[in-house]
C-alpha cells in the first residue's frame, strides 16, 4: 500500500506540461506543484464528477495531456463514466485512481465491497484499452514513465493508505489556496489565453 503524498511526488517528476486534476490527492499536490496554472485543483465541487470534468478538458484540448487522480468513492458514484470515456477514447487522457477503500473525508466509512472490487478489470470491461494496478511504490516508480509515454486512455488503479478526516467540514483548514472559480479562470487562461 502506498502513501498518496509519495504517489504525487513521483508523478511530479513526469508531469511535463500536463493539465493535472489532483482530485482527492489535492492536499498533497498543491504544496509541491510546479505549474499551478495548469492545475485544475477542485477539491470536491460535487462528488462523482471528477472523471467527467477531466474528460471534458481532454476533449476540448486533445493535444494536451490530461492527468486525473480519481478516487474509489467517486468511481462508485459514476461508474458509467468509464464507458463514456472508453467510447470517447481520448488519447491524451490518463486516469489514475486512488483507492483507499474508505470515504476518508467523511470519517472513514467503508466504500461498498472495497476489498473485492476489481477496478482495473471494470475499466477494461468498459472498453479502456489499457489498465494497470499498483500497490507498491517501487513498482509504480518503474511503471509511471512507461504509462505516461503511451497513448491513452489508460486506467491506473493505485492502492493507497487512508488519511481519515474526522472533524466537521467547517472546522477544517483549507488546503486549496485558490477558490474554484479562480482555478477555472487560471486553467482556461493558460489553455486558450483568455
Amino acid at each position: 500500500m502506498m502513501e498518496t503524498a509519495d504517489v504525487m511526488k513521483l508523478f511530479l517528476k513526469y508531469r511535463d506540461d500536463a493539465v493535472v486534476l489532483s482530485g482527492r490527492g489535492g492536499r498533497h499536490w498543491v504544496p509541491i506543484t510546479d505549474n499551478e496554472k495548469l492545475d485544475a485543483t477542485m477539491g470536491d465541487p460535487a462528488m462523482g464528477g471528477h472523471a467527467s470534468y477531466a474528460l471534458g478538458i481532454a476533449l476540448a484540448q486533445p493535444k494536451k495531456k490530461v492527468v486525473l487522480f480519481d478516487s474509489d468513492g467517486d468511481i462508485h458514484m459514476s461508474m458509467g463514466m468509464l464507458a463514456t470515456i472508453a467510447e470517447q477514447a481520448p488519447t491524451n487522457f490518463y486516469h489514475f485512481m486512488l483507492d483507499n477503500e474508505i470515504y476518508a473525508t467523511t470519517g472513514g466509512q467503508p466504500v461498498p465491497n472495497a476489498k473485492v472490487v476489481d477496478y482495473s478489470g471494470i475499466a477494461t470491461a468498459c472498453g479502456y484499452p489499457k489498465a494497470h494496478s499498483y500497490s507498491e511504490l517501487s513498482d509504480l516508480e518503474v511503471g509511471m514513465p512507461e504509462i505516461l509515454a503511451k497513448e491513452g486512455p489508460i486506467f491506473v488503479h493505485l492502492k493507497v493508505a487512508p488519511t481519515i478526516e474526522n472533524t466537521p467540514i467547517g472546522q477544517r483548514k483549507p488546503w486549496n489556496n485558490r477558490d474554484r472559480v479562480k482555478v477555472v479562470q487560471d486553467v482556461r487562461g493558460e489553455l486558450i489565453g483568455v
Binding site: G48, G49, L55
Partner: peptide, 26 residues
C-alpha cells in the same frame, strides 16, 4: 458537432464544465 453520450445526466454537468474550462462551447 462532437457528441458525448453519458449514462447519468449529472455527469453531463461536469463534462460541460470541463469542456468550458478547456475552451470549448458545450
Amino acid at each position: 458537432l462532437h457528441m458525448v453520450g453519458v449514462g447519468r445526466e449529472g455527469n453531463a454537468a461536469a463534462v460541460a464544465a470541463g469542456l468550458y474550462t478547456g475552451g470549448a462551447k458545450p
